[in-house]
Amino acid sequence: MAEQATQQAEQGAERTPQWAMAIDLDRCTGCEACVVACASENNVPTAGEDQAAMGRTKHWIRIDRYYEGEFPDIKVKYRPVMCQQCDEAPCEPVCPVNATYQNAEGLNVQIYNRCIGTRYCANNCPYTVRFFNWFAPEWAEPLNLQLNPDVSIRPSGVVEKCTFCAHKIKRAKLDADADGRDLADGDVQPACVQSCPAEAMVFGDMSDADSKVARQLGSGRAGQLLESLGTKPRVFYLEKAD
């Protein structure tokens, strides 16, 4: 892939970035700053106290916890899990209306207008990161006053999920375009990456061999969630080095 990238660079052709994320599990402290940042960036509605008590919250990113050992010698491991933007996504072929597909940049796209709410995709996702809107979105005051105008409000009856902050990718591209320059590594920062105080998350173009994310993928520590399923996620987890 790196060879391909350099070839393209030599030809001077416009390169299509291949977005990927690397999450260093050694750095993640499970603080959930990414969860909060994601919800406010992407207009993810709050479920309310009653619904939350029934486990009906909606989060585009969550922190999975793993416990090792017996009390009191417990070690907790954290793993942020969002849409894995799979290359071989199980959600895509089951959609009867093509509302979800993989675009040229490797993003697993969800088009709300097309979605008819069969929920096949959510049921077929091994990572359980897709959410169906049973109700019209609501925000407890004053959260209703801080909605992001760059992100559409999803109505009831459609499925939604992490977009890798597609609107921020778009914004970064437009900004670069306006300045007449190419998109540089680090120009695009999804809300979770931007907010991570431990800098555990890195986002970028993995087809660019010099990008930070590509270097992390080549570190020998990178693995994927439920790799054996063959979904080929674009989210890579850097496990503890032995």
Binding site: A104, N113, T163
Partner: peptide, 8 residues
């Protein structure tokens, strides 16, 4: 003509 160009 990617859907994501406008719908997000």
């Amino acid at each position: 003509d990617d859907c994501l160009a406008c719908h997000y």
